[in-house]
């Protein structure tokens, strides 16, 4: 690996300050499972690596009545270990996380890293999108929030400005009775990237039916199906999804297969979702 310098600031503010000073040549290190691979294969050539794990506040995982607050240094397995997260309405998120990479990788990889890396096939993004998750952003001009879907602007591109970082993801507590589910297609049962993935959320209190499809377009697709909440029409949902997705032919799968599997996953999630 080519050389870079390394710093581990003790606070978010210090990270922001160093990020601003370093200009575009600094990279953030949370779990490192994407960054170290990118440096090794020379996809990125940072002069400075800023380790987020020195900032205590970024390692916090909060789960209370208001929802989840997942700091940028929180590893994926901690989400699975937290009972309040792994059961109930956040289920789509934990299903996605449990299918994301291998157990050992999840001991380093973070949720915020999965989101901000902005890979089209990031498994956590469709669940976060249907759960209305928002990214809390710190930067030179203070903090701001963006819905996760708006944060991601393209393949490995985000709307983070110069010197900005995502400090945590906030998932508002779903209304009582909310159900969510996630499905992923991959080539083996073991760790693999998604050929396509789908999350569905059903919120009876607000009459919401939201679906998000990932790994097909540069940015996951969100479908607002509230109109069919009372009378779900699965084939119409399939058609709507297929209208929006634009998968590619690549070494992992063909367009045709990806489209078929999106349809299958939508049908299966609809079948799994509670009726009332």
């Amino acid at each position: 690996m080519q050389s870079f310098s390394y710093e581990k600031p003790g606070s978010t503010a210090a990270i922001v300050a160093r990020l601003a000073e370093a200009g575009g040549t600094a990279r953030l290190l949370a779990g490192g499972t994407d960054l170290i691979g990118q440096i090794r294969s020379r996809l990125v050539k940072p002069s400075l690596v800023l380790d987020l794990k020195g900032a205590r506040e970024l390692a916090l995982l909060g789960a209370d009545a208001s929802g989840l607050s997942i700091g940028a240094a929180v590893i994926l397995n901690r989400l699975l270990e937290e009972r309040a997260v792994s059961e109930g309405p956040y289920r789509a998120l934990t299903q996605a996380v449990s299918e994301l990479a291998s157990y050992n990788i999840r001991n380093r990889a973070t949720l915020v890293g999965n989101v901000t890396n902005a890979s089209p096939c990031a498994d956590s993004v469709p669940p976060l999108v249907v759960l209305d998750a928002r990214a809390e952003i710190a930067g030179p001009s203070g903090t701001r929030e963006l819905p996760v879907l708006e944060l991601i602007s393209g393949v490995r591109e985000t709307r983070l400005g110069p010197g900005e970082l995502v400090t945590r993801i906030r998932v508002p507590a779903p209304a009582p009775g909310t159900w969510s589910g996630f499905l992923k297609r991959k080539r083996v049962r073991g760790h693999d990237l998604a050929l396509a993935n789908v999350a569905l959320l059903r919120d009876p209190e607000r009459g919401r039916l939201r679906m998000s499809v990932g790994s097909c377009n540069p940015v996951p697709v969100l479908l607002d199906l509230d109109a069919m909440f009372a009378r779900p029409e699965v084939e119409r949902a399939v058609a709507l999804a297929l209208e929006r997705v634009r998968p590619i032919d690549d070494v992992r799968a063909s367009i045709e297969y990806r489209r078929e599997m999106v349809a299958v996953m939508v049908r299966r999630l609809f079948a799994e979702a509670p009726r009332s």
């Binding site: 490192g32 397995n77 050992n104 001991n107 380093r108």
Partner: peptide, 9 residues
């Protein structure tokens, strides 16, 4: 925690 040492500095 088990980790892949190639992915850690």
């Amino acid at each position: 925690r088990p980790v892949n040492a190639c992915m850690v500095l």
